[in-house]
Amino acid sequence: MSNERIFTTQFAQIYPMYIQKAERKGRTKEEVDQVICWLTGYNPAELSQQIEQGNDLRTFFAQAPALHPNSSMIKGVVCGIRVEDIKDPLMQQIRYLDKLVDELAKGKALEKILRQ
């Protein structure tokens, strides 16, 4: 899948998959929302608005109030690629979010996921 195809995918299409992944492992939608809001700076109302507007991932991250300053602490592998080594800033942000949801689904404590 090319980067452009991922960038133009609607966040509203991916969001339910994040929730399903987390819920299958006993986590909640609220925890997924908390992780997304932590990374992007959206509040819950703004997150809902992004989903309702059907924005693509490029727009979702471009309109994000502020990427969390501790996001650079997110390390690890997603889809066989180390997130800290990704050169494209948008792709790195997308993979950061993927990694956070993965950590949530694996049962990691929320405080550790949120790099507190």
Rank of each mutant, 00 (worst) to 15 (best):
M1T: 14
M1Y: 05
N3E: 02
E4W: 03
R5Q: 13
I6Q: 01
F7S: 07
T8A: 07
Q10S: 03
F11Q: 03
I14Q: 08
I14T: 13
I14K: 12
Y18A: 06
Y18G: 02
Y18H: 10
Q20I: 10
K21C: 10
K21F: 13
G26Y: 03
E30V: 09
E30I: 05
E31C: 06
E31N: 05
V32G: 02
D33V: 11
Q34G: 09
V35A: 08
I36T: 09
C37Q: 08
W38N: 08
W38A: 08
L39P: 00
T40A: 05
N43Q: 12
N43R: 12
N43M: 10
L47K: 03
L47R: 02
Q49W: 11
I51L: 07
I51T: 01
I51C: 01
E52V: 15
N55E: 05
L57C: 14
L57P: 08
F60E: 04
Q63G: 10
A66I: 14
L67V: 15
H68V: 11
P69S: 14
N70Y: 12
G80I: 12
G80Y: 09
G80D: 01
R82A: 05
D85L: 13
D85F: 06
P89I: 13
M91S: 06
Q93D: 04
I94Q: 00
Y96S: 01
K99P: 00
K99A: 02
L100V: 05
V101W: 06
V101D: 02
K106V: 03
K106I: 01
G107C: 02
A109G: 02
L110K: 06
L110Y: 01
L110D: 03
E111P: 06
K112P: 00
I113D: 00
I113F: 02
I113V: 04
L114W: 07
L114Q: 03
Q116E: 12
Q116P: 12
